[in-house]
Design a protein around this nucleic acid. Structure first.
Lengths: 110, 110
DNA sequence: ACCGATGTTCGACATTCGTCGAACAAGCTC
DNA sequence: GAGCTTGTTCGACGAATGTCGAACATCGGT
């Protein structure tokens, strides 16, 4: 994949929001597990990957984090062996005003 | 499917928005063809099914209209042999304030 | 009553997606 | 360095999804 940086670290693919089609953002949000992640991030600010209770294996969790990251929804900070994830709130609100609010302040999924 | 009404007409399945999970709404919007339909409806108000230029066969078009309808995004009025579709704007804005605006006023998909 | 126009439904098909276990990589601690 | 922890990657699998052509259903008009 040649995503290897000058120091041998795997570069995290975090696209510009202008490079992400809306449909990709919407698709990323259109999954229950990922929506729960996004909501937790909106509440708690930054969180470590492992601190989510999602009812799926860590392989699946990792997959969802990747989808969110590549859809431009999250940013990842590497610290030791763990990864800290946070919402790209400001950027998202600027590019899609109202989107996150609408999705996050949903009063009932049923 | 026993969606047959008292007069033999096929009842159109148009759910209450409270019965539709957000993820279903987002999934319905997370498709290029459907997004184009929704945008056209937002601009033109009500339109007849056949008047969309989408680059897919009518079977596929029909499929997408069904997805939109069952996700609570559109309402369908039957008139003779054609169907008139319109966005459920007000309801959607009430339940997901900002969602449609955010998706519709996107300045560039790229 | 026929015919044409408008949509829907029915398989069929290829692609994508969510999920898993297992193997791997990298960092921390003793 | 050995071992534990955290997280990613790699197939594999089944389920869901977008697409199509063909058949069907309805309605309007001639």
């Amino acid at each position: 994949m040649s995503n290897i940086g000058y120091d041998g670290h795997m570069e995290l693919h975090e696209p510009d929001l202008s490079d992400v089609p809306v449909t990709a953002v919407l698709a990323a949000l259109a999954d229950d597990v990922r929506l729960r992640i996004v909501r937790a991030l909106a509440e708690d600010g930054e969180r470590v990957c492992g601190t989510f209770e999602l009812g799926v294996t860590k392989a699946t969790r990792s997959h969802h984090f990747k989808v969110l990251r590549e859809a431009g929804l999250t940013r990842t900070r590497v610290a030791g062996t763990s990864r800290h994830i946070r919402l790209r709130r400001d950027e998202l609100d600027r590019r899609y005003p109202g989107l996150l609010d609408a999705v996050l302040t949903d009063r009932a999924d049923a």
